[in-house]
Design a protein around this nucleic acid. Structure first.
Lengths: 121, 121
DNA sequence: TGATCATATAGCGATCTAGAGATATACTGG
DNA sequence: CCAGTATATCTCTAGATCGCTATATGATCA
């Protein structure tokens, strides 16, 4: 596997490529868009998404573009409408993680985790 | 589960709390630090980490602080040394995802994914 | 062709982030 | 206390991101 060098670590090249994708995806509204599309189970247009999530058309479109640029979403035009759908299923793992774990820690809160680490000094 | 409202979606409050943690973790060097600590299997000090990863002391310390603030890492002082370890195992899921999947898509590249979505219009 | 709906983009100011260098703090041993 | 080592923090500049408003593009229908 090209992701790991002889050191057993994921190489920087891979991390530098992947990190921005995760970073850009880890945005409240964008995560919500993905979650919404997942629940709907199929493509939805900008207006639907915006209305369902209570976000402005312009903002919604911007976020969708960002997600599409990252390859997370795909888009298909149908007349006046642009339908977006999830093209990268692996991003759902993030949502699962958030849902189950209340994600990536934070179940007890970062603050608690940190102060615990400090007192344990 | 408090993460989901009656809509079945993860609520914004949760996303707004969790997103920054993921976003801050999704940084090449920080991911590498976590990966390094995982491989080592135990606490390591700043110098070790910096040398292993070829990053400046100042930068290394800064990244470690960020990760500690997020509750991803914990720290323990032993004399002159500060030993860091992974306190939030859920962050390892991210690494696993990257390792296996070459992560979160990108195996074929975002560009390919996007143009594919476009041509499939 | 003109009106209208749906979507995309440009520009703006505010905020955040990255990394580098210099410096400060903290601990150890003499 | 002093010198040396290890770590943390401050400061600064450049660049990225955020959400907003206004506007542009593109498609449909009368």
């Amino acid at each position: 596997m090209s992701a790991s060098t002889t050191t057993g670590l994921i190489d920087m090249e891979t991390l530098e490529r992947v990190a921005p994708v995760i970073r850009l995806t880890a945005h409240p509204l964008r995560l919500r868009i993905i979650d919404y599309l997942r629940r709907e189970g199929g493509p939805r247009c900008v207006t639907d998404i915006g209305e369902a999530l209570g976000s402005d058309q312009s903002v919604t479109s911007q976020q969708l573009r960002i997600l599409r640029d990252q390859g997370v979403l795909g888009a298909r035009r149908d007349g006046c409408h642009m339908f977006y759908n999830i093209t990268d299923p692996s991003v759902l793992l993030l949502l699962d993680c958030i849902r189950e774990h209340h994600c990536c820690r934070s179940s007890d809160g970062p603050t608690a985790a940190r102060s615990a680490a400090q007192t344990a000094h």
